[in-house]
């Protein structure tokens, strides 16, 4: 059952059409998102136009957190089901997760200067995001340093260990005194951000998510072709 699902998944992800669809959607959402966030959305009454940095900083942070959580979830699956498909999927998501984490850190730093007066502060949210970045680096380095099965095991352990940091990032603004404000966009309770700002934020989040799917599909193809290349050698 699981194997037949992955076989269909492989065919779909290898298809050129899938990538064309994802790429087209990404371009559409990015164009709309940029238009909304740079031209249509209002400036903040305190931060003025500096608030527009939020439209790249927040989605990047959300996506990097989401990807790492997904990698950790798949890593757990690697130990439970011993399925190699989980390994390839987790490995293929890591590059985009790392880049989104870097974007969140750098754009956060750029936003910090006009709003807090500093490029960097050892604030709980920023520090825990930096720790997540280090876990991403460790995860990718593990794949470079070790061979196949050993790399899968070590990188999975890194992801599972690093997952402890995810709730710390989420609740750091509630647990400790932080320069960051508590979350304005909530799933379970009422969102406190105005729709004129929420629309570009969601559009950019969708665009970023589509970009991570596109990169995943391309990286997944690279990994599959590498395996197929080895398979041809064994024929």
């Amino acid at each position: 059952m699981l194997n037949s699902f992955f076989e269909i998944f492989k065919i779909i992800s290898l298809s050129k059409l899938t990538r064309i669809i994802v790429f087209s959607l990404f371009v559409i959402f990015l164009t709309l998102g940029l238009f909304e966030s740079l031209l249509l959305s209002p400036e903040d009454y305190i931060q003025s136009d500096a608030v527009r940095i939020m439209y790249v900083h927040v989605p990047a942070a959300w996506i990097s957190l989401g990807i790492f959580s997904f990698i950790a979830f798949l890593s757990l699956g690697i130990f439970i089901f011993k399925n190699k498909n989980f390994v390839i999927i987790a490995k293929s998501f890591a590059p985009s997760g790392l880049v989104f984490n870097l974007i969140a850190l750098v754009t956060g730093s750029i936003w910090g200067k006009p709003t807090w007066g500093t490029w960097w502060a050892w604030d709980p949210r920023i520090t825990s995001m930096l720790v997540l970045f280090l876990f991403y680096v460790l995860y990718i380095v593990a794949w470079r340093l070790f061979e196949n099965d050993k790399a899968a095991k070590i990188s999975s352990l890194v992801a599972i260990t690093g997952f402890v940091n995810v709730p710390i990032i989420k609740f750091s603004v509630d647990w400790w005194a932080s320069l960051h404000q508590p979350s304005s966009v909530k799933i379970l309770s009422e969102t406190t951000i105005h729709s004129s700002m929420l629309t570009p934020l969601l559009l950019m989040t969708a665009a970023f998510a589509l970009f991570s799917v596109l990169i995943f599909l391309m990286k997944y193809n690279v990994e599959l072709i590498k395996i197929k290349n080895k398979g041809l050698d064994r024929l």
Binding site: L34, S48, D49, A50, I53, V99, I103, V106, W111, P114
Partner: peptide, 19 residues
Amino acid sequence: MNGYGLFVWSAFAFTLINF
């Protein structure tokens, strides 16, 4: 951007260059 242009544009540029 009311004096924040350098910050805003560099944040967006950094994102797109990374993409």
